[in-house]
Design a protein around this nucleic acid. Structure first.
Lengths: 220, 220, 220, 220
DNA sequence: AATGAATGAGCGTTCATTCAT
DNA sequence: TATGAATGAACGCTCATTCAT
């Protein structure tokens, strides 16, 4: 029972966790409040003591986790100076935290996007803050001369976000999901050095980009 | 009336277009078949002469457009040799075609993804073919020595797709959407040359990357 | 095709036969006019050139067969003098004709009775005439001194009808239907001589009732 | 309101009664669940708290009453020794209980038989038990020497059942229904003594069968 | 706070019937 | 006559939400 756990917000938490499970399993529209109540071991009506509506429940799931995520990402970055390290850290956190809770990841990647309304809410909320952070990282990278000055930080941030997002979605949909975190290195490789080969790249760095990536990763 | 239009598949087409409009406006679950029928100026039951179910209608919207898109992208590429040109052409087409029909874009970016089931269907179908194409482009770029040989083509393809996808979704959600096509250039800039500045880049190519991009774009 | 058969009423007949088959198989409410049309190899709309409505089609099935049945029963009886022979002949015809067309029997025993309205129509129509005939037979039997004079001909007629009807329904419902006609003899045995043993029956007729039954049956 | 009635199963009962009324009035297919709900003074959805489906509701009507009926019939018989008395008692109960609730009788005689499927369910269930009981009565009558030993108990049971059933159906369909119970006596007369006159019957029992029937009836 | 029985609006789908061809 | 595409009214059932206890 969710009763004795901690007393206070234990029931609320139980409901939220149940919601994540049920939404992930059946999808938002396929999920019935009754299912959530059953999983949370709570009466139907009790849900409404903690959440205004089904939609509010989904929103709560979002806010419960997303806020913390962005905040921690910012804190992580505050302790780093190299924007490449920042990106690496943020993306690793991103992938690792979703990998740790697949149901939650499903809700974030799929269920939260089932309507323009919801999508907008996310886009204006947490995602926007996340993009903002990425943009700042890119900006500071440019200032530091680490990133190319021709970059459009807005577009760059979206490219980064889109890329990670796509990897996560693919992972969600995969039947036998491979590791998510492992994909940070090749992802950063593309993001950092792009697709194109610069004429003298090989001369500059024998052994190529892999070494660089390893170098970076190794230094953390 | 949809009657006299062209005679044959006119009604089917009218229904499909109505579906796109209604799905885009109200979302798949918010849309009632009756709405679709009304917009198509057709009786409720008529919908079922052309489509098996609401879900089938959504599926049909997908297949009606997605297939053609990938095919054309392939045809476009067949006439080009430089993989950079290929990417540019494909992404331009991608953005341009969605920009031309915002309702359709909404359905593709949002409604078709409302459930794991549907998402999977797409991921295994058209999107997978699209990714395949991108992967081939990257692969040929590597072979030609235009793209870096360290690239993981699979990850690179996902990065490209994720980036475009993110741009489109952002455009869908924006209240006053700016041009989509205009974003191809900065997008390619990031994708081609990455975030990082290579130490001697400035020396090699005065004027930097912008010039290169312009050069490429200008040549088309 | 039902085309060339005889020209005129061939199509009407084809539809009626199709209706019997479909009604028997799926039940009146489960049957769709389209099914009937398909079996009759006719367009949906054509049904309405021959019958006013689905209900009318069922009614037509009834009238097409029931009328003839009662008429023939009367004709049969006209050639007999012994009311016991009459009953036997009528019931044999009854069972034999239904046994010959199980689908038709199904429609008569089940589908035609799905509503009070229809049941009433039958009860007032063909069944009433059939009961009338039975009643007359009983009446003449009483007059002739063959049947007991205490009989209430109305009740007797209903008992006879109910008994046959029940046998037919049981036959319809049976998975592996045994012969129907074979049941006439034991049925008549009960109807003619009742359940009770009259005190001196054994004395009067050694060998008992079986012999009598055989005697009667044998004489035909 | 059905609320305060008895508390517990009151609502379920109210729904069942409403169903009987509505099914009897409009027929199973003509009846809408909404009608049932309205008559039961209950919300539409409430029906589904007590019954799985419309069909389940009809089934429940059947089982609610039929079981009790057969059980009571058996109990009645257990206290009697003369199979004639048994038959009389059972049939009287049968007719009396249906006469007491015409709507219920309608459902039993008509609505429960609207499809082969349902008819089969009944035939295999309650009716089969009823027939079994009748068969046993006939059997014991034969053993006791009260009934003729030539009887085929199976056929005899069906004759009895068919006869009663027919009387009830006729009563249901009649516009101005006469008494049902009153028909037991003439019914038994036919069933007991059959149609045929045995040669010396008049001698044996002056006053004929009527007297015997009265004798029997009078003794109860 | 917690319950869960009750509510009732809402929707996808079917199918008898029509009618322009 | 015949067709079959089109119609649109109708209905069983679901489920988010409420509220008396």
């Amino acid at each position: 029972m969710a009763r004795g756990e901690q007393g206070k917000g234990a029931k609320r938490k139980a409901i939220l966790e149940a919601a994540v499970r049920v939404f992930a399993e059946k999808g938002y529209f396929g999920a019935r409040m009754r299912d959530v109540a059953a999983v949370a071991q709570v009466a139907d009506g009790t849900l409404y003591l903690y959440f205004d509506s089904k939609e509010d429940l989904l929103t709560a799931v979002l806010e419960e986790h997303a806020q913390a995520f962005v905040e921690r990402a910012r804190r992580d970055c505050a302790q780093l100076s190299d924007p490449r390290h920042m990106l690496q850290t943020v993306l690793e956190r991103h992938l690792a935290s979703l990998e740790a809770n697949r149901a939650l990841a499903t809700v974030f990647q799929i269920e939260l996007r089932h309507s323009r309304k919801f999508l907008r809410r996310i886009a204006k909320g947490q995602v926007s803050q996340y993009l903002q952070l990425l943009q700042e990282i890119v900006g500071s990278g440019v200032s530091q001369g680490v990133f190319r000055r021709e970059l459009d930080p807005k577009v760059a941030a979206r490219v980064i976000f889109g890329a990670v997002d796509e990897l996560v979605t693919a992972w969600i949909l995969a039947q036998k999901p491979s590791g998510l975190k492992e994909q940070v290195a090749p992802l950063l490789d593309v993001l950092f050095y792009g697709l194109c080969r610069t004429t003298n790249q090989e001369v500059q760095e024998k052994g190529g980009n892999h070494e660089r990536t390893n170098h970076l990763t190794g230094s953390l």
